[in-house]
């Protein structure tokens, strides 16, 4: 379980994180989405006891991150967005070192490490030097490392960043397996669709503030008050535009550049009002060929949410 209460982090006058309130129940996979520099890594660093917040509180499994950092460390597996490995260290030694760091006895480590390597598909690389592994392999190894003490909470900061599509899929499969194991996972990405597939809940953060959170479907609904409707006519586009312009719920009518007699408009009304609008157009005997709502994907939703945000 993870909980933050009014969590704030300021660097001088710059606010990296502004009163973040999160509550993630046990066994939930929570996706944290935001553009680069939105405050994801700051939140994760605080949860991982690496950064002291300016104000507010954070709890992992009921332990206070500020007051009981040692206990928190035993309950989290943390994977930073950028990390390095030691030179001249073999895969198996790498895991053994971190296992020992968590106080796992040697006999247990010997049994545990092959299992972890199996989980992340690195069994064949156990005697290779870690600095010579590919990026995808390093990410997987780092994930295996974060699991070595069987933590209940996983804090994964962009575990799939910089991976090729195949490595991404592999990473996703491993995460699904971890989800099935009942771990509480908080995972960040700046790619929303990637998260939507494996997360139970999603939080969107921009400029240090949580702008939306909830299930994937509810976020989509919450943020799509604006429907975009495509209209295609046989002829008479000008007449149609004049008619649609009259409706108060219609805005930003745009003629399609490539297709003739086609335009889109934004509509804020309900479904009934949408039907009424179409009926009115048909009553005017406009030769409408199609009248369809544009399916917006999560990417559009993300852009919609972060629209107007100053990224500088």
């Amino acid at each position: 379980m993870i909980e933050t209460i009014n969590l704030t982090k300021k660097y001088g006058s710059f606010t990296a994180l502004n009163s973040l309130n999160l509550k993630i129940e046990k066994g939930t996979v929570f996706g944290f989405v935001g553009h680069n520099g939105a405050g994801k890594s700051t939140t994760f660093s605080i949860l991982a006891t690496l950064l002291a917040p300016t104000s507010g509180a954070a709890y992992v499994n009921g332990y206070d991150v500020i007051k009981e950092p040692k206990k928190v460390r035993n309950h989290i597996g943390y994977m930073p967005d950028f990390f390095g490995v030691y030179d001249q260290f073999k895969t198996i030694e790498y895991l053994d070192f971190y296992g020992a760091s968590y106080g796992i006895p040697q006999s247990e480590r010997q049994a545990l490490i092959p299992q972890l390597l199996e989980l992340v598909n690195l069994s064949h690389k156990q005697d290779d030097y870690v600095d010579l592994l590919s990026r995808g392999m390093k990410q997987r190894l780092c994930l295996a490392r974060s699991l070595i003490h069987d933590p209940e909470v996983l804090i994964l900061d962009e575990p799939a960043s910089g991976l090729d599509p195949r490595a991404r899929i592999e990473m996703r499969e491993i995460l699904k397996e971890l989800k099935n194991m009942g771990k509480t996972i908080i995972i960040s990405s700046h790619i929303l669709p990637e998260l939507a597939e494996m997360c139970d809940e999603i939080g969107v953060i921009t400029n240090g503030e949580l702008v939306a959170s909830g299930s994937v479907a509810s976020i989509q609904q919450q943020l799509q008050a604006n429907k975009v409707i495509n209209v295609k006519l046989a002829t008479d586009i000008e007449k149609a535009i004049l008619l649609f312009e009259d409706d108060p719920k219609v805005s930003t009518i745009t003629k399609h550049e490539r297709y003739e007699n086609t335009f889109t408009f934004a509509f804020t009304g309900s479904e009934l009002e949408q039907i009424a609008l179409l009926k009115k157009a048909l009553d005017q005997e406009l030769p409408i060929l199609s009248f369809s709502q544009e399916e917006s994907n999560l990417e559009d939703v993300f852009l919609e949410i972060t629209k107007g945000v100053d990224f500088s």
């Binding site: 660093s45 006891t49 690496l50 950028f82 390095g84 760091s101």
Partner: peptide, 13 residues
């Protein structure tokens, strides 16, 4: 600098 410190500091050592 080689970004291994963060990981080391999240261990209970």
């Amino acid at each position: 600098e080689r970004q291994t410190l963060n990981i080391l500091l999240t261990t209970p050592q």
